[in-house]
Design a protein around this nucleic acid. Sequence first.
DNA 1: CAGCTGACAGATATTGAAATCTGTCAGCTG
DNA 2: CAGCTGACAGATTTCAATATCTGTCAGCTG
Lengths: 195, 195
Amino acid sequence: MAATEPLTAERILRATEEVLRRHGPAKATVVDVARALGVSHGSVYRHFRTKAALREAVTKRWLDRTSEALSGIAADADRDPESRLRDWLATLFAAKRRKAGDDPELFATYSVLAGEQGEAVAEHIADLTGQLTRIVAAGVDAGAFRAADPEATAWAVFRATACFHDPAYAPEWKTPGADADFAALVDLLVQGLRA
Amino acid sequence: MAATEPLTAERILRATEEVLRRHGPAKATVVDVARALGVSHGSVYRHFRTKAALREAVTKRWLDRTSEALSGIAADADRDPESRLRDWLATLFAAKRRKAGDDPELFATYSVLAGEQGEAVAEHIADLTGQLTRIVAAGVDAGAFRAADPEATAWAVFRATACFHDPAYAPEWKTPGADADFAALVDLLVQGLRA
DNA sequence: CAGCTGACAGATATTGAAATCTGTCAGCTG
DNA sequence: CAGCTGACAGATTTCAATATCTGTCAGCTG
Protein backbone atom coordinates (compact mmCIF):
# COMPACT_ATOMS: atom_id res chain seq x y z
CA MET A 1 0.00 0.00 0.00
CA ALA A 2 1.31 3.44 -0.93
CA ALA A 3 2.24 5.74 1.93
CA THR A 4 -0.84 7.77 2.99
CA GLU A 5 -0.71 11.30 1.63
CA PRO A 6 -0.27 13.88 4.36
CA LEU A 7 -3.46 15.59 5.45
CA THR A 8 -3.14 19.18 4.21
CA ALA A 9 -5.50 22.15 4.32
CA GLU A 10 -5.64 21.87 0.54
CA ARG A 11 -6.86 18.26 0.62
CA ILE A 12 -9.45 19.15 3.24
CA LEU A 13 -10.73 22.04 1.15
CA ARG A 14 -11.08 19.82 -1.91
CA ALA A 15 -12.93 17.18 0.11
CA THR A 16 -15.18 19.87 1.59
CA GLU A 17 -16.10 21.13 -1.87
CA GLU A 18 -16.99 17.58 -2.86
CA VAL A 19 -19.11 17.07 0.25
CA LEU A 20 -20.87 20.38 -0.35
CA ARG A 21 -21.54 19.40 -3.95
CA ARG A 22 -23.04 16.08 -2.82
CA HIS A 23 -24.95 17.05 0.33
CA GLY A 24 -25.67 20.76 -0.09
CA PRO A 25 -24.84 23.51 2.40
CA ALA A 26 -27.43 22.55 5.02
CA LYS A 27 -26.43 18.89 5.40
CA ALA A 28 -22.68 19.00 4.84
CA THR A 29 -21.00 18.15 8.16
CA VAL A 30 -17.41 18.07 9.34
CA VAL A 31 -17.87 14.38 10.02
CA ASP A 32 -18.78 13.88 6.34
CA VAL A 33 -15.59 15.66 5.27
CA ALA A 34 -13.49 13.53 7.61
CA ARG A 35 -15.17 10.37 6.37
CA ALA A 36 -14.49 11.35 2.76
CA LEU A 37 -10.81 11.72 3.65
CA GLY A 38 -10.69 8.53 5.74
CA VAL A 39 -9.60 10.36 8.90
CA SER A 40 -11.14 11.23 12.23
CA HIS A 41 -13.00 14.53 12.37
CA GLY A 42 -10.60 15.62 15.11
CA SER A 43 -7.90 15.83 12.44
CA VAL A 44 -9.91 18.30 10.40
CA TYR A 45 -10.11 20.55 13.47
CA ARG A 46 -6.31 20.53 13.54
CA HIS A 47 -6.33 22.54 10.27
CA PHE A 48 -9.50 24.60 10.69
CA ARG A 49 -10.47 25.87 14.13
CA THR A 50 -14.22 25.72 13.50
CA LYS A 51 -16.70 24.55 10.92
CA ALA A 52 -17.38 28.20 10.09
CA ALA A 53 -13.68 28.76 9.35
CA LEU A 54 -13.69 25.77 7.00
CA ARG A 55 -16.75 27.05 5.19
CA GLU A 56 -15.22 30.50 4.95
CA ALA A 57 -12.01 29.12 3.43
CA VAL A 58 -14.04 27.26 0.79
CA THR A 59 -16.06 30.37 0.05
CA LYS A 60 -12.95 32.52 -0.27
CA ARG A 61 -11.45 30.08 -2.75
CA TRP A 62 -14.57 30.19 -4.87
CA LEU A 63 -14.77 33.99 -4.83
CA ASP A 64 -11.06 34.35 -5.60
CA ARG A 65 -11.41 32.27 -8.75
CA THR A 66 -13.78 34.94 -10.12
CA SER A 67 -11.55 37.83 -9.06
CA GLU A 68 -8.49 36.42 -10.79
CA ALA A 69 -10.12 36.15 -14.20
CA LEU A 70 -11.09 39.82 -13.98
CA SER A 71 -7.89 41.26 -12.56
CA GLY A 72 -6.14 40.59 -15.85
CA ILE A 73 -8.61 42.81 -17.71
CA ALA A 74 -8.44 45.55 -15.08
CA ALA A 75 -4.64 45.57 -15.15
CA ASP A 76 -4.25 45.60 -18.95
CA ALA A 77 -3.09 49.22 -19.21
CA ASP A 78 -2.55 49.00 -22.97
CA ARG A 79 -6.21 48.87 -23.90
CA ASP A 80 -8.48 51.88 -23.93
CA PRO A 81 -10.49 52.26 -20.71
CA GLU A 82 -13.96 52.14 -22.25
CA SER A 83 -13.43 48.79 -23.94
CA ARG A 84 -11.73 47.52 -20.82
CA LEU A 85 -14.73 48.55 -18.72
CA ARG A 86 -17.17 46.94 -21.13
CA ASP A 87 -15.07 43.80 -21.26
CA TRP A 88 -14.71 43.64 -17.47
CA LEU A 89 -18.44 43.97 -16.88
CA ALA A 90 -19.32 41.51 -19.64
CA THR A 91 -16.79 38.99 -18.33
CA LEU A 92 -18.14 39.28 -14.80
CA PHE A 93 -21.70 38.76 -16.00
CA ALA A 94 -20.72 35.88 -18.28
CA ALA A 95 -18.76 34.13 -15.53
CA LYS A 96 -21.60 34.39 -13.04
CA ARG A 97 -24.17 33.31 -15.55
CA ARG A 98 -22.12 30.33 -16.66
CA LYS A 99 -21.62 29.16 -13.09
CA ALA A 100 -25.30 29.59 -12.29
CA GLY A 101 -26.39 27.81 -15.47
CA ASP A 102 -23.91 24.91 -15.52
CA ASP A 103 -24.65 23.60 -12.04
CA PRO A 104 -27.51 25.50 -10.39
CA GLU A 105 -27.38 23.44 -7.22
CA LEU A 106 -23.70 24.04 -6.66
CA PHE A 107 -24.22 27.72 -7.41
CA ALA A 108 -27.05 27.83 -4.87
CA THR A 109 -24.77 26.10 -2.38
CA TYR A 110 -22.07 28.71 -2.81
CA SER A 111 -24.65 31.50 -2.69
CA VAL A 112 -25.83 30.25 0.70
CA LEU A 113 -22.23 30.03 1.88
CA ALA A 114 -21.53 33.56 0.65
CA GLY A 115 -24.64 34.76 2.47
CA GLU A 116 -23.27 33.59 5.83
CA GLN A 117 -19.76 34.97 5.26
CA GLY A 118 -20.15 38.73 5.54
CA GLU A 119 -16.42 39.23 5.93
CA ALA A 120 -15.19 37.16 2.98
CA VAL A 121 -17.83 38.61 0.67
CA ALA A 122 -17.02 42.16 1.75
CA GLU A 123 -13.35 41.55 0.88
CA HIS A 124 -14.29 40.08 -2.48
CA ILE A 125 -16.50 43.07 -3.28
CA ALA A 126 -13.74 45.43 -2.15
CA ASP A 127 -11.37 43.62 -4.51
CA LEU A 128 -13.76 43.91 -7.46
CA THR A 129 -14.61 47.56 -6.86
CA GLY A 130 -10.88 48.22 -6.48
CA GLN A 131 -10.34 46.82 -9.97
CA LEU A 132 -13.21 48.92 -11.30
CA THR A 133 -11.76 52.00 -9.62
CA ARG A 134 -8.49 51.46 -11.44
CA ILE A 135 -10.27 51.23 -14.78
CA VAL A 136 -12.29 54.36 -14.10
CA ALA A 137 -9.23 56.25 -12.87
CA ALA A 138 -7.29 55.18 -15.97
CA GLY A 139 -10.16 56.51 -18.08
CA VAL A 140 -10.12 59.83 -16.26
CA ASP A 141 -6.34 60.09 -16.70
CA ALA A 142 -6.64 59.32 -20.40
CA GLY A 143 -9.34 61.97 -20.76
CA ALA A 144 -11.91 59.40 -21.88
CA PHE A 145 -14.03 59.49 -18.71
CA ARG A 146 -15.25 62.24 -16.47
CA ALA A 147 -15.56 61.38 -12.77
CA ALA A 148 -15.05 63.69 -9.80
CA ASP A 149 -14.37 60.74 -7.50
CA PRO A 150 -13.33 57.59 -9.39
CA GLU A 151 -13.85 55.38 -6.35
CA ALA A 152 -17.41 56.61 -5.78
CA THR A 153 -18.13 56.31 -9.48
CA ALA A 154 -16.72 52.78 -9.64
CA TRP A 155 -18.91 51.88 -6.71
CA ALA A 156 -21.95 53.36 -8.48
CA VAL A 157 -21.19 51.29 -11.59
CA PHE A 158 -20.80 48.16 -9.49
CA ARG A 159 -24.09 48.73 -7.68
CA ALA A 160 -25.88 49.67 -10.89
CA THR A 161 -24.92 46.32 -12.39
CA ALA A 162 -25.79 44.35 -9.25
CA CYS A 163 -28.72 42.75 -11.09
CA PHE A 164 -26.17 41.05 -13.32
CA HIS A 165 -23.82 39.70 -10.69
CA ASP A 166 -25.72 39.41 -7.40
CA PRO A 167 -26.74 35.74 -7.03
CA ALA A 168 -30.15 36.87 -5.77
CA TYR A 169 -30.96 37.79 -9.38
CA ALA A 170 -29.60 34.57 -10.89
CA PRO A 171 -33.05 33.30 -11.98
CA GLU A 172 -33.36 36.29 -14.32
CA TRP A 173 -30.03 35.70 -16.05
CA LYS A 174 -31.38 32.99 -18.31
CA THR A 175 -34.46 34.91 -19.47
CA PRO A 176 -34.44 35.81 -23.19
CA GLY A 177 -34.00 39.57 -22.78
CA ALA A 178 -31.12 39.39 -20.31
CA ASP A 179 -28.38 40.12 -22.84
CA ALA A 180 -30.23 43.06 -24.33
CA ASP A 181 -30.99 44.44 -20.85
CA PHE A 182 -27.35 44.10 -19.90
CA ALA A 183 -26.18 45.84 -23.07
CA ALA A 184 -28.66 48.69 -22.58
CA LEU A 185 -27.51 49.23 -19.01
CA VAL A 186 -23.79 49.18 -19.89
CA ASP A 187 -24.40 51.63 -22.75
CA LEU A 188 -26.23 53.96 -20.38
CA LEU A 189 -23.43 53.82 -17.82
CA VAL A 190 -20.63 54.25 -20.35
CA GLN A 191 -22.52 57.20 -21.83
CA GLY A 192 -22.73 58.72 -18.38
CA LEU A 193 -19.00 58.25 -17.84
CA ARG A 194 -17.78 59.79 -21.10
CA ALA A 195 -15.99 63.09 -20.84
CA MET B 1 -75.64 46.65 21.35
CA ALA B 2 -75.02 48.22 17.94
CA ALA B 3 -75.83 46.11 14.90
CA THR B 4 -72.77 44.09 13.89
CA GLU B 5 -70.97 45.69 10.97
CA PRO B 6 -71.20 43.64 7.79
CA LEU B 7 -68.17 41.50 7.07
CA THR B 8 -66.52 43.08 4.04
CA ALA B 9 -63.33 42.25 2.15
CA GLU B 10 -62.01 45.59 3.39
CA ARG B 11 -62.52 44.67 7.07
CA ILE B 12 -60.88 41.29 6.49
CA LEU B 13 -57.87 42.92 4.84
CA ARG B 14 -57.44 45.33 7.75
CA ALA B 15 -57.69 42.50 10.27
CA THR B 16 -55.19 40.47 8.24
CA GLU B 17 -52.70 43.33 8.28
CA GLU B 18 -53.07 43.52 12.04
CA VAL B 19 -52.57 39.78 12.47
CA LEU B 20 -49.51 39.89 10.21
CA ARG B 21 -48.11 42.77 12.23
CA ARG B 22 -48.60 40.82 15.47
CA HIS B 23 -47.67 37.29 14.47
CA GLY B 24 -45.41 37.71 11.45
CA PRO B 25 -45.83 36.05 8.06
CA ALA B 26 -44.96 32.52 9.19
CA LYS B 27 -47.44 32.24 12.04
CA ALA B 28 -50.38 34.32 10.80
CA THR B 29 -53.29 31.96 10.17
CA VAL B 30 -56.74 32.38 8.68
CA VAL B 31 -58.14 31.24 12.03
CA ASP B 32 -56.30 34.15 13.71
CA VAL B 33 -57.86 36.58 11.26
CA ALA B 34 -61.34 35.16 11.87
CA ARG B 35 -60.80 35.30 15.64
CA ALA B 36 -59.71 38.95 15.41
CA LEU B 37 -62.96 39.70 13.58
CA GLY B 38 -65.11 37.59 15.90
CA VAL B 39 -66.36 35.36 13.08
CA SER B 40 -65.86 31.79 11.98
CA HIS B 41 -62.98 31.17 9.61
CA GLY B 42 -65.49 29.80 7.11
CA SER B 43 -66.75 33.35 6.65
CA VAL B 44 -63.32 34.56 5.62
CA TYR B 45 -63.29 31.91 2.87
CA ARG B 46 -66.50 33.43 1.56
CA HIS B 47 -64.52 36.55 0.58
CA PHE B 48 -61.13 35.02 -0.30
CA ARG B 49 -61.00 31.62 -1.97
CA THR B 50 -57.68 30.63 -0.37
CA LYS B 51 -55.19 31.82 2.20
CA ALA B 52 -52.81 32.61 -0.67
CA ALA B 53 -55.45 34.86 -2.28
CA LEU B 54 -55.86 36.72 1.01
CA ARG B 55 -52.12 37.22 1.36
CA GLU B 56 -51.91 38.36 -2.23
CA ALA B 57 -54.65 40.94 -1.69
CA VAL B 58 -52.83 42.32 1.34
CA THR B 59 -49.56 42.44 -0.60
CA LYS B 60 -51.19 44.20 -3.54
CA ARG B 61 -52.60 46.84 -1.21
CA TRP B 62 -49.20 47.49 0.27
CA LEU B 63 -47.49 47.72 -3.11
CA ASP B 64 -50.20 49.98 -4.53
CA ARG B 65 -49.67 52.48 -1.74
CA THR B 66 -46.11 53.01 -3.02
CA SER B 67 -47.17 53.22 -6.66
CA GLU B 68 -49.74 55.92 -6.00
CA ALA B 69 -47.32 58.32 -4.34
CA LEU B 70 -45.06 58.04 -7.40
CA SER B 71 -47.68 58.19 -10.14
CA GLY B 72 -48.29 61.85 -9.30
CA ILE B 73 -44.68 62.71 -10.03
CA ALA B 74 -44.58 60.66 -13.21
CA ALA B 75 -47.75 62.27 -14.52
CA ASP B 76 -46.79 65.89 -13.74
CA ALA B 77 -46.21 66.93 -17.34
CA ASP B 78 -45.46 70.55 -16.40
CA ARG B 79 -42.09 69.89 -14.78
CA ASP B 80 -38.93 69.25 -16.75
CA PRO B 81 -38.17 65.56 -17.20
CA GLU B 82 -34.76 65.51 -15.53
CA SER B 83 -36.00 66.94 -12.25
CA ARG B 84 -39.05 64.69 -12.44
CA LEU B 85 -36.78 61.66 -12.90
CA ARG B 86 -34.56 62.69 -10.00
CA ASP B 87 -37.59 63.37 -7.83
CA TRP B 88 -39.24 60.09 -8.77
CA LEU B 89 -36.15 58.03 -7.94
CA ALA B 90 -35.48 59.94 -4.71
CA THR B 91 -39.11 59.56 -3.61
CA LEU B 92 -39.06 55.84 -4.30
CA PHE B 93 -35.86 55.41 -2.31
CA ALA B 94 -37.09 57.61 0.55
CA ALA B 95 -40.41 55.76 0.77
CA LYS B 96 -38.74 52.37 0.88
CA ARG B 97 -36.15 53.48 3.38
CA ARG B 98 -38.74 55.03 5.65
CA LYS B 99 -40.87 51.90 5.65
CA ALA B 100 -37.85 49.71 6.34
CA GLY B 101 -36.59 51.99 9.10
CA ASP B 102 -39.84 52.76 10.90
CA ASP B 103 -40.95 49.20 11.47
CA PRO B 104 -38.32 46.71 10.32
CA GLU B 105 -40.36 43.69 11.36
CA LEU B 106 -43.42 44.77 9.41
CA PHE B 107 -41.20 45.56 6.45
CA ALA B 108 -39.65 42.11 6.70
CA THR B 109 -43.14 40.64 6.86
CA TYR B 110 -44.20 42.38 3.67
CA SER B 111 -40.91 41.45 2.00
CA VAL B 112 -41.60 37.79 2.70
CA LEU B 113 -45.13 38.19 1.38
CA ALA B 114 -43.85 39.91 -1.75
CA GLY B 115 -41.36 37.08 -2.22
CA GLU B 116 -44.13 34.51 -2.48
CA GLN B 117 -46.33 36.60 -4.78
CA GLY B 118 -44.55 36.51 -8.14
CA GLU B 119 -47.62 37.76 -9.97
CA ALA B 120 -48.49 40.74 -7.77
CA VAL B 121 -44.87 41.88 -7.62
CA ALA B 122 -44.47 41.56 -11.38
CA GLU B 123 -47.52 43.80 -11.85
CA HIS B 124 -46.16 46.33 -9.39
CA ILE B 125 -42.80 46.42 -11.16
CA ALA B 126 -44.56 46.74 -14.51
CA ASP B 127 -46.49 49.68 -13.08
CA LEU B 128 -43.35 51.41 -11.81
CA THR B 129 -41.33 50.87 -14.99
CA GLY B 130 -44.34 52.10 -16.94
CA GLN B 131 -44.19 55.37 -14.98
CA LEU B 132 -40.45 55.58 -15.59
CA THR B 133 -40.96 54.95 -19.29
CA ARG B 134 -43.36 57.89 -19.46
CA ILE B 135 -40.79 60.17 -17.81
CA VAL B 136 -38.02 59.02 -20.16
CA ALA B 137 -40.26 59.33 -23.21
CA ALA B 138 -41.28 62.84 -22.13
CA GLY B 139 -37.60 63.70 -21.83
CA VAL B 140 -36.88 62.38 -25.32
CA ASP B 141 -39.83 64.34 -26.74
CA ALA B 142 -38.62 67.50 -25.00
CA GLY B 143 -35.13 66.98 -26.39
CA ALA B 144 -33.63 66.70 -22.91
CA PHE B 145 -32.88 62.97 -23.05
CA ARG B 146 -31.46 60.68 -25.70
CA ALA B 147 -32.82 57.13 -25.74
CA ALA B 148 -33.32 54.87 -28.74
CA ASP B 149 -35.90 52.78 -26.88
CA PRO B 150 -37.43 54.62 -23.89
CA GLU B 151 -38.95 51.46 -22.46
CA ALA B 152 -35.61 49.60 -22.51
CA THR B 153 -33.86 52.62 -21.06
CA ALA B 154 -36.44 53.01 -18.31
CA TRP B 155 -35.97 49.36 -17.47
CA ALA B 156 -32.18 49.87 -17.35
CA VAL B 157 -32.62 52.81 -14.95
CA PHE B 158 -34.95 50.77 -12.76
CA ARG B 159 -32.56 47.85 -12.63
CA ALA B 160 -29.56 50.10 -12.05
CA THR B 161 -31.24 51.53 -8.96
CA ALA B 162 -32.38 48.14 -7.65
CA CYS B 163 -29.94 48.45 -4.75
CA PHE B 164 -32.04 51.35 -3.54
CA HIS B 165 -35.48 49.81 -3.77
CA ASP B 166 -35.11 46.03 -3.67
CA PRO B 167 -35.89 44.92 -0.08
CA ALA B 168 -32.97 42.48 -0.26
CA TYR B 169 -30.67 45.52 0.08
CA ALA B 170 -32.63 47.14 2.92
CA PRO B 171 -29.87 46.59 5.53
CA GLU B 172 -27.57 48.87 3.50
CA TRP B 173 -30.05 51.75 3.32
CA LYS B 174 -29.26 52.97 6.80
CA THR B 175 -25.46 52.95 6.41
CA PRO B 176 -23.85 56.40 6.50
CA GLY B 177 -22.79 56.60 2.84
CA ALA B 178 -26.14 55.51 1.42
CA ASP B 179 -27.31 58.99 0.45
CA ALA B 180 -24.02 59.86 -1.23
CA ASP B 181 -24.00 56.53 -3.08
CA PHE B 182 -27.55 57.12 -4.24
CA ALA B 183 -26.74 60.65 -5.43
CA ALA B 184 -23.63 59.45 -7.31
CA LEU B 185 -25.61 56.73 -9.09
CA VAL B 186 -28.45 59.05 -10.06
CA ASP B 187 -25.97 61.62 -11.37
CA LEU B 188 -24.27 58.96 -13.46
CA LEU B 189 -27.57 57.75 -14.90
CA VAL B 190 -28.90 61.25 -15.62
CA GLN B 191 -25.60 62.11 -17.28
CA GLY B 192 -25.96 59.01 -19.46
CA LEU B 193 -29.49 60.02 -20.44
CA ARG B 194 -28.77 63.60 -21.43
CA ALA B 195 -29.01 64.45 -25.12
C1' DC C 1 6.99 14.13 19.65
C1' DA C 2 4.02 15.59 15.71
C1' DG C 3 0.08 14.09 14.12
C1' DC C 4 -3.88 11.41 14.69
C1' DT C 5 -7.67 9.00 17.26
C1' DG C 6 -11.88 8.37 19.65
C1' DA C 7 -14.69 9.28 23.72
C1' DC C 8 -17.06 12.97 25.68
C1' DA C 9 -20.27 17.26 26.91
C1' DG C 10 -23.12 20.45 25.18
C1' DA C 11 -25.45 22.17 21.03
C1' DT C 12 -28.12 21.16 16.96
C1' DA C 13 -30.89 18.37 13.90
C1' DT C 14 -34.15 14.62 12.99
C1' DT C 15 -38.24 12.07 13.74
C1' DG C 16 -42.83 10.66 14.54
C1' DA C 17 -46.97 11.38 17.29
C1' DA C 18 -50.20 14.89 18.57
C1' DA C 19 -52.09 19.37 17.72
C1' DT C 20 -53.42 22.84 14.60
C1' DC C 21 -54.60 24.64 10.24
C1' DT C 22 -56.74 24.86 5.49
C1' DG C 23 -60.51 24.49 2.66
C1' DT C 24 -65.34 22.39 2.10
C1' DC C 25 -70.04 22.08 2.86
C1' DA C 26 -74.56 20.74 4.90
C1' DG C 27 -77.43 23.03 7.63
C1' DC C 28 -78.77 26.93 10.87
C1' DT C 29 -80.44 31.76 11.51
C1' DG C 30 -82.36 36.30 11.06
C1' DC D 1 -82.41 33.01 1.01
C1' DA D 2 -77.96 35.45 1.82
C1' DG D 3 -74.73 35.09 4.98
C1' DC D 4 -72.77 32.67 8.67
C1' DT D 5 -71.50 28.54 11.51
C1' DG D 6 -69.07 24.58 12.99
C1' DA D 7 -67.79 19.79 12.10
C1' DC D 8 -64.88 17.37 9.12
C1' DA D 9 -60.84 15.24 6.06
C1' DG D 10 -56.49 15.86 4.64
C1' DA D 11 -52.32 18.78 4.90
C1' DT D 12 -49.19 21.19 7.76
C1' DT D 13 -47.01 22.52 12.02
C1' DT D 14 -45.47 21.80 16.72
C1' DC D 15 -43.16 19.45 20.31
C1' DA D 16 -40.47 16.34 22.84
C1' DA D 17 -37.67 12.34 22.61
C1' DT D 18 -33.85 10.63 20.17
C1' DA D 19 -29.91 10.80 17.27
C1' DT D 20 -26.25 13.30 15.27
C1' DC D 21 -22.98 16.89 15.17
C1' DT D 22 -19.42 20.31 16.92
C1' DG D 23 -15.45 21.26 19.30
C1' DT D 24 -12.11 19.56 23.04
C1' DC D 25 -8.62 16.87 24.79
C1' DA D 26 -6.10 13.01 27.05
C1' DG D 27 -3.71 9.53 25.28
C1' DC D 28 -2.09 6.41 21.39
C1' DT D 29 1.09 5.49 17.43
C1' DG D 30 4.74 5.45 14.10
